[in-house]
């Protein structure tokens, strides 16, 4: 029986889709059977980031409304046998599927896959409720900005009311070292102080993320990039390993604190 992990944020554009694509990819790299589910109906992206757009025949809404079998809608990744995508519909809106239908689909997928990564749309309305309905775990993505942290806090509050979801874990995305050093960006322990949930990883802001998304090749596939390392480490932490943070920064103090936050000495 697999585990379903929803990737959510509240605020838009902070990196949910990027995180879903890369976390799914690194888990597949580890040989796990992974299904990515795009629940951003009407604004689907995950297929593009994965480079699978041209293989889509059916989508999530087709499955929910019985126009095809679940298996028919799954798009096989071109690189990994063990990685599949259930794409969102592009032509309808978020109301065309209900949370209980969503839960049924995720439950069915859990029988066949080790991990189901659910890419959640921005916002706290129907799309969020759909995405969370079948989830066992949650990853909250934030950037080191006040508005993003505020929305993450709101989402954490809502996730805490979802009894079937385990306590959410945090990814801080798009960290820019020069801003951290100059104190212009919220520091990691300031964010942790507010949100008070477990940190599962930090990802630097990396131009490579954007170019690889455009090419439909998740950056996690390029082992020379630091963002890729970060995603690989997140993947290993999801698998239950204790992975120290890689050295992003020369400044000792910074890492000491982050290590402490990750529960390491």
């Amino acid at each position: 029986m697999g585990e379903a992990i929803v990737v959510t944020s509240g605020k838009g554009g902070v990196g949910k889709t990027t995180t879903s694509a890369n976390v799914g990819t690194v888990l597949a790299l580890q040989g796990k059977k992974v299904c990515l589910v795009d629940t951003d109906i009407g604004l689907r992206n995950l297929d593009v980031v994965m480079g699978l757009e041209n293989r889509i025949i059916y989508d999530l809404v087709d499955v929910a409304q019985g126009r095809c079998k679940l298996n028919q809608a799954l798009v096989k990744d071109k690189r990994f046998e063990c990685l599949s995508l259930l794409p969102a519909a592009q032509t309808t809106d978020k109301d065309s599927i209900q949370p209980d239908q969503m839960k049924k689909i995720i439950d069915t997928l859990k029988a066949d896959f080790d991990y189901i990564i659910i890419d959640c749309p921005a916002g706290i309305e129907r799309g969020f409720k759909n995405a969370v309905a079948g989830a066992d775990h949650a990853i909250v993505v934030t950037t080191p900005e006040i508005s993003s942290v505020r929305d993450a806090d709101r989402i954490i509050g809502l996730l805490e009311q979802e009894k079937q979801v385990s306590p959410p874990r945090l990814i801080i995305n798009r960290i820019r070292q020069h801003l951290l050093k100059s104190g212009e960006m919220l520091e990691i322990d300031e964010i942790m102080n507010i949100l008070a949930i477990d940190l599962i990883g930090i990802v630097i802001d990396d131009d490579g993320v954007i170019s690889s998304s455009n090419k439909g090749e998740p950056i996690a596939l390029n082992p020379s990039s630091k963002a890729a390392m970060a995603y690989r480490n997140i993947g290993r932490r999801i698998l239950g390993e204790t992975v120290p943070l890689m050295d992003l920064d020369e400044k000792q103090g910074f890492f000491h604190r982050v290590k402490a936050l990750l529960g390491m000495r």
Binding site: R150, D153, R154, G157, L158, E160, I194, A196
Partner: peptide, 24 residues
């Protein structure tokens, strides 16, 4: 923790052990 968007309202005196975050 009273998070953004949450409202905690009581009759009597409130002793909250935890934070009230911005927006809470």
């Amino acid at each position: 923790i009273v998070r953004s968007g949450q409202v905690l309202s009581v009759q009597g005196n409130l002793l909250l052990i935890g934070d009230v975050n911005p927006g809470g």
